[in-house]
Structures are given as C-alpha cells and as structure tokens.
Design a protein around this nucleic acid. Structure first.
Lengths: 233, 233
DNA sequence: AGGCGCCAATGAACGCAATCCATCATCCAG
DNA sequence: CTGGATGATGGATTGCGTTCATTGGCGCCT
C-alpha cells in the first residue's frame, strides 16, 4: 500500500489511498457506527471522521449517503448468507423449513440495526428489486420453493396453498416475531422461535388433517385384517 | 367562528382561528398531501401552505413534524377501526379469523401511504407502545386472543401454540403479503388474500387428534402388527 | 533524479428543511 | 375604547447532505 501523510499549513493532512482501501475504510466506518448507535442517527460527517477523511471525500466514492448505507446493508446481508447451506443437507421437510427460519432469525439477531435498516429503508423503496438485498433474499425463497415443490409432490403438503402465501407466512412471521427485539425491548432465542414457527407452518401446509387420514387408512386396513383374523378364528 | 382577515404592508395576511379549526386544518392538509404523494416527501412548508398558514404556526400546535405526522396516522388508524365489529358476530373460528384478516387487509389497501408510515416510522420507534396505533392494534389482538382461547377450550385448536406466535403469524403474514402493493407494484384483493391466509392459519392451529402422542405410538405398533399379518397372508 | 500531470482529498460554500423566536396583529374583557 | 393576552408571521438559525473549485501527493516519463 502506498500511503504517506504530510502536514501542511494548519495541520492539513492529505493521505492518498487506493480506491479499494478508501472504500473499505468508509464502509467499515459506516458499519461500525450503525452497529453501535443505529442507522437513524448516522451522519456523513461522522462516517467521514471515523474513516479519517473529510465529508467531500465520501462523495468521490459514493453518489449519496443513501447509496453508501445501502452498500453497507448489502455487504452485511451477503456475509450473512455465506454460511447458508443447501437445505437438501437436511432430512425431512420440517427440518429443512426449520433450518431456513432459524437461519433468518439468526441473521436478524446478529445485526439488529442493519435489519431495521433493511426493513424500514430498503424494502419500501420502489427500486427494491434492483437491490442486492432482494437478490439475496431469493436464495431463501428459492430453497423454500424447492422444499415446497418436493413436499407437494410427495403428498406431504397440500397443493391448494399458493407458494407466494407460504413465503409471506414464513418471512412475515419471522419479521413480526422480531420487532420487539428490534425495538430494543427484549431478546429472543432463534432456535426456540424457529421451532415454533416451523411447527405451525408445517402443520398449516400439511396436506390433510395431521393424523386424520392416516387414521382412516389404517383403520380400514385393521378392519380388513381383523376380518381375516375373525375368519380364521 | 371568529375569523377576520386583514392586509397589512405587503399583503401580510393574519387570520385568527380557534385551536380546533387550526389543528383540524393542519391535520387535514397533512393527510391530503400524504394521501396523494406519500409521506416520504412531505415538508412542513407544504403542509402549512395547504392549510393556509405559515410554517411557524404549525409549531404552535405541534411540537414537531414527527408529532404531527404521528397524529395524522393515529387519526386515520382510529377511523379505520370505527367499522370493526366484534367477531362474536361471526360463527365459527374460521370465519372470525378470516374477518379480522380481511379487515386488516382492507385497512391497508384503503390507506397505503399511511400504512407505510406506520410500518416504517411508527412501529420501529422505541416509544411505539405509547402510541395510539399500538393501543388500537390491541383491539385486533384482543379479538384474536378471545377467538384463540375459545378454540383451544373447545379443542378445535391445539394448545401447544403460543398465542404470541399466532399473532405474529397473522399480522406478519398480512403485512408481508401487502408489501408489493405498498411499493406500488401491483394490487391485491383483500377478500381473496384473507381467505388464503385464514385457511392456512386455521389449519396450522388445528388440534392434533386427541392424545396424539399415544395415538402415534399405538398406530405404529398396529401398523407393524398388520404388516406381519399381511406377510403371512 | 527531477519534473509533470493526473486525480485523490480537502474544506468551504450551498441549498433545503426543520425549528425557534422577536415582533406584530387581533381579539376580548372590563 | 383600550390594554393585555395570545395567535400568527416570517425571518433567523441550525443541522445535514451535497457540490465544487483548489490543493498537493504520487507515479510515470524522460
């Protein structure tokens, strides 16, 4: 890295850095600030100061504050997905569903401030769909789609529930479950909540009343077996 | 109403109004503007102009822009609840649930801009719980609570689902289902979506057949017995 | 090694929006 | 009719994002 620092006049400090370093510094600074005091109060001046530069410099690398914050959120979100494994690694629809819910909850818990930013600033934008956040979210929904298709094919899930609705239920419930926490009013255990959510969703999607049909089938079979036993007797 | 208007100097206009009228005018102006161009762009100057007053006057009646907008949202939300009937008017858990979902969806559809405001600005605030919006929402959850308790008591719903989770599923799903619409990307039919949501929720909450666990064990045993008998046959 | 030109970095200035406040205009009680 | 009391005004202030004319460091070229 080429970087020299020189004082001129009234302690004017000029340090030239490569684009990568500067952008990295700025993003890191912004993220640190958001992480410790939320995104609602951040100021470009504050970010610049923490990055060791001046406000104007920020604008050499980012078109606007909005764009900068979006980038921070996108990077964070992308990192959150780095450990997402393919649900095919899990056996059974329930476990797959539970894993996705758990992963999402874990992400929110790990980054409350940025989660809030995504929920309140990114998603409502008209160009949300051009966002990396949107693309990343498709990784979740993609897996949900597969899991869902398989479960329907095997007869495990009812085919009369639109996939869109399943997605909305999964993510809507996840988000709503975390608002108290996001407001700073308490905590939650991702594993516990994931279990609850997955359980109800699973049952809600199930093709038939949980055990009802199986009961009828087995009952019929038992009757026929009993009949045969009776005949033998 | 006492109201006189006089021009002084360079057309300075001063009109004295009662508090009620002024507050009403301001709220009406703010609401109209939000209604037609969303809340994200509103300016105090714009509101003042539409209300026929000057910016400073707004601050005689509202501590801040934030407080003003919150009041607008609260009033709107309160009006939305004016036609909410008690779910006891509906027969059957499903119909009650469906009605609540439908009513909520209808409200969102009727006021997209203010819904967005509530979702993105009001709910995230630390003092959300001091808000009239929060209180009003309790009317929904109160009814959900009752409906839920009754269904559990009658054995219709499983008792192993926390009430909190049901609430989160209901409202989370409702909200998530409407985001596309709120972003201005399409439309939705409250009745249709309410049906879908209520159906899946209802099924998800449904009780297992009595004595589920024991039943499962016995079932498995009977099946294995039947298998053996089948083999012999 | 020295000079040059490019472009990163600066920091002052600008614009806009929220908020405050000194002053003026009305209203109304007496 | 007149003197508070209080509503209304509009200009001043402040904070923040954004712009841009200058400055000067760094790598390249000779």
């Amino acid at each position: 890295m080429t970087a020299s620092t020189v004082r001129k006049r009234r302690n004017r400090v000029v340090t030239r850095q490569s684009q990568d370093v500067r952008v990295g510094d700025i993003l890191k600074a912004a993220r640190a600030i958001i992480g410790q005091s939320g995104y609602e109060g951040v100021t470009v001046a504050e970010i610049a100061e923490r990055a060791g530069i001046v406000e104007g410099t920020v604008y050499r690398y980012f078109k606007s504050k909005e764009e900068l914050l979006l980038k921070v959120a996108e990077d964070w979100f992308a990192e959150s997905f780095s450990d997402l494994v393919d649900v095919s690694a899990f056996s059974g629809t329930y476990n797959k569903l539970r894993y996705l819910v758990w992963h999402s909850l874990k992400t929110i818990k790990a980054g409350p401030a940025l989660s809030r930013f995504v929920f309140t600033e990114v998603r409502p934008k008209p160009d949300y769909k051009d966002t990396a956040v949107f693309d990343l979210n498709r990784r979740y929904t993609e897996q949900i789609r597969n899991l869902f298709a398989e479960a329907i094919e095997s007869g495990e899930f009812s085919h009369d529930v639109p996939e869109r609705l399943l997605r909305d239920m999964v993510f809507g419930t996840i988000e709503h479950s975390t608002w108290r926490f996001l407001r700073g009013e308490g905590d939650f255990d991702p594993a516990e909540i994931a279990d609850e959510i997955a359980a109800v969703l699973y049952r809600g999607m199930s093709a038939k009343p949980p055990e009802g049909d199986r009961f009828a089938v087995v009952l019929a079979r038992l009757e026929s077996v009993a009949d045969r036993l009776d005949e033998k007797a």
